[in-house]
């Protein structure tokens, strides 16, 4: 089986000219965890994860504390929201380089990338670099596990 057989072809993406605010609404409306960023030719130039965009909700100083288990009521921090100006920044400021697979790759290639880099979703590109789909850990995992039912049955 190849990646193109288990990927989702209906992939949401965002143009590199969009703002953080626009990206946030795509995340929220479509219930997704990773948003590929494409240029005007439809080529993938990077990704924005839920984690990166959610960082705006957390105050900067959270990074200074190794853990926050001992806080049971965040008080005034609970109501802090990103400031409007931040949301109008271009989405590419939050973008990170994409780890991708090609549609003709095998499943093991995707699985190894996900495990090594602790990723949940991999954008799938065609041989000429255009975004053609996305494969999640669940898509991939269930596709692999589905093949297990034949193990041990082949000889019999």
């Amino acid at each position: 089986m190849l990646i193109r057989d288990c990927m989702k072809q209906n992939v949401f993406s965002i143009p590199d000219t969009a703002t953080i605010r626009e990206a946030a609404s795509i995340f929220a409306e479509n219930h997704i965890g990773l948003l590929p960023v494409v240029n005007e030719d439809g080529h993938l130039i990077g990704v924005v994860g839920l984690r990166e965009i959610l960082k705006l909700e957390l105050p900067d100083f959270f990074d200074l504390l190794p853990e926050l288990d001992f806080v049971h009521d965040f008080g005034a921090v609970e109501t802090t929201r990103p400031i409007a100006e931040q949301l109008d920044h271009p989405i590419i400021t939050l973008m990170r380089p994409a780890t991708t697979v090609t549609e003709t790759d095998g499943l093991l290639k995707a699985l190894s990338l996900m495990l090594k880099h602790q990723l949940n979703d991999l954008p799938v590109i065609s041989n000429n670099g255009r975004l053609v789909g996305i494969v999640s850990r669940v898509d991939l995992g269930t596709a692999i596990l589905a093949t297990w039912k034949n193990i041990g049955n082949e000889i019999a």
Partner: peptide, 13 residues
Amino acid sequence: IAPVTILICEILG
């Protein structure tokens, strides 16, 4: 101590 101080102040508002 300073990071915890910031946390306490931010919680207090």
